Amino acid sequence: MAFDLPEEKARWARASAERLWAGKTSVKMEVQLRNTPFYVKGVAFGDIVKVKADHERRELVFEEFVSESGHSAVRVIIKDEGVREEVDAILRAFDCSWEVDVTGFLWAINVPPRADYASMRVALLQIVSEKKIGLEESALAGMHRDGLNLLDLEN
């Protein structure tokens, strides 16, 4: 299924749409996402979205968000080649899965519901402060956002 990209993202991605794997649900024209996006914001692995058929393109196209899965989508851009193993170790410690784009510099990270995202974020932000990576939180699940709010209240 396809997510049409805004012009600015499309230029950067060198594509007019990002295509994600999706599985059928029991509701007609609703699908469950089966991977983590590199460019699309607001959706994560397992989320349910409504699609419409684009007969000209012969594909299903995103229409609207339906419900979240509890997973979050985070992106990392590697700025320093030497940091890959450190980022890899952090992601493994929090039981995340991820995909790397063809350049090897953009990582699409699936943060599972059970992950302590607040702690993981602290570790990643340390590397951001060293200017070794860029970080984008493209879709944070409610439980991960709530964990960040609790962390803010404690500090």
Rank of each mutant, 00 (worst) to 15 (best):
A2D: 09
A123P: 00
S97M: 07
K131H: 12
V49T: 06
M120Y: 02
P112M: 07
S138F: 01
V111I: 12
V43C: 04
P37F: 03
L135A: 06
Y39A: 06
E64T: 14
E59R: 15
S16D: 11
I78N: 10
V40D: 04
V102S: 15
V76L: 13
L125V: 08
E85S: 15
E99T: 12
A44T: 08
V27R: 14
E137I: 01
E86M: 11
V74P: 07
R57K: 14
D80A: 15
S97Y: 09
F38A: 06
R145E: 00
A93M: 09
E68L: 04
D101N: 13
R19M: 09
F105K: 14
R114G: 05
E85C: 09
S138A: 06
W98N: 04
I48H: 01
T25V: 08
K131E: 14
K131L: 10
T103M: 03
R11E: 13
R92V: 13
A108S: 10
G46W: 01
V49C: 06
A53Q: 13
L135T: 03
A44Y: 08
D101I: 05
S129D: 11
S97T: 15
E64F: 09
V43Y: 01
R121F: 08
S26C: 03
P112S: 06
E137A: 09
V83L: 11
R11Y: 09
A22L: 02
S26V: 10
D47M: 07
A108W: 03
V83W: 09
R92A: 12
L33H: 02
A89G: 07
N35F: 00
V31D: 01
A73K: 04
A93S: 15
A89H: 07
F45R: 10
W12R: 12
V43H: 00
R14Q: 06
I133G: 05
S129P: 03
R19H: 12
E81K: 15
Q126T: 13
I77M: 12
A139E: 02
I77C: 10
N155K: 14
K132L: 03
E59C: 15
V27L: 11
V40L: 05
A10C: 03
L125M: 13
D54K: 07
A73E: 02
R11P: 06
F65V: 07
A123K: 14
A2N: 09
I109D: 05
